[in-house]
């Protein structure tokens, strides 16, 4: 193995990327990135579900507030949002802490990242889920109603399962965006994959090696996600004959 790498002139790269060297840092960065992506995606789903229901069934005030939320978040570039939410957020937390007589608080990077990206994801998820809920045939919900299902049970047992097949492709996109948006957190000094890569590269001057390695890691995340979402989509579409035929 080592012999082969030497032969290809990649010995130096292999050494740089070894786990005891900078490679370990890259993997730690990746772990941080994934943690944030997971959290943000999950938070986004929760916000999105409430947002979608609020937009569809809420009163005038709820709908207006949600319209402002989704419009503003989707209009402003993510990088700018991250800077605003991060600095405004930590400022508010510190103000509160000082008002309560405490000192300045150390903001937990992961938690901050999840909040910031989660709020961004929530705006997109609201629209994805709203569309999916609207695509559920009314008859499905009417049947639930006509058999005395209360609203929340209907949502849990009928609407959400029935909308999943419409929502999954959009949600898969959102997840991939979440994994990549974590890179933007580098601007606030958070040690995710991109920042770790930049540090490794500038310390060793092996830019090509490290950015290629980081690109490879992002690609692997995408490929694995693709496989997972393919299965989720298959499950969500259970009961629907495939478009390729084979029904009946």
């Amino acid at each position: 193995m080592t012999g082969l790498l030497e032969l290809l002139g990649l010995g130096a790269s292999a050494e740089l990327l070894s786990l005891s060297g900078w490679g370990g840092n890259l993997l730690r960065g990746l772990a941080n990135s994934l943690q944030i992506a997971f959290g943000a995606f999950g938070l986004g789903l929760v916000i999105g579900l409430f947002g979608a229901y609020g937009k569809l069934y809420g009163g005038k005030v709820t709908r207006d507030l949600l319209a402002i939320y989704t419009t503003v978040i989707r209009a402003v570039p993510e990088l700018v949002l991250i800077l605003i939410l991060y600095y405004v957020g930590s400022d508010i937390i510190n103000k509160i802490s000082e008002a309560m007589g405490g000192g300045r608080v150390e903001i937990n990077g992961v938690a901050a990242g999840i909040w910031v990206l989660g709020i961004v994801q929530g705006a997109y998820a609201t629209e994805v889920l709203r569309g999916a809920i609207k695509a559920v045939p009314v008859g499905q919900i009417e049947a639930a109603k006509s058999y005395g299902m209360p609203a929340f049970l209907t949502m849990r047992r009928v609407t959400i399962p029935a909308m999943m097949s419409f929502a999954v492709p959009g949600l898969a996109n959102l997840w991939l965006i979440a994994t990549k948006d974590t890179a933007l957190l580098a601007v606030v000094g958070f040690n995710e994959l991109t920042l770790e890569t930049r540090q490794a590269a500038s310390s060793t001057r092996a830019y090509f090696t490290f950015f290629l390695a980081a690109g490879f890691l992002y690609l692997m995340v995408t490929l694995c996600s693709g496989a997972v979402f393919a299965r989720v989509e298959k499950w969500a579409r259970r009961g629907q004959p495939s478009l390729k035929g084979g029904a009946r």
């Binding site: 049947a143 058999y147 029935a162 009961g239």
Partner: peptide, 15 residues
Amino acid sequence: LAMVFQQFNLWTHRT
């Protein structure tokens, strides 16, 4: 009052 609909309205994601 059990209702039977013109379009059946069975829940498609359930057996």
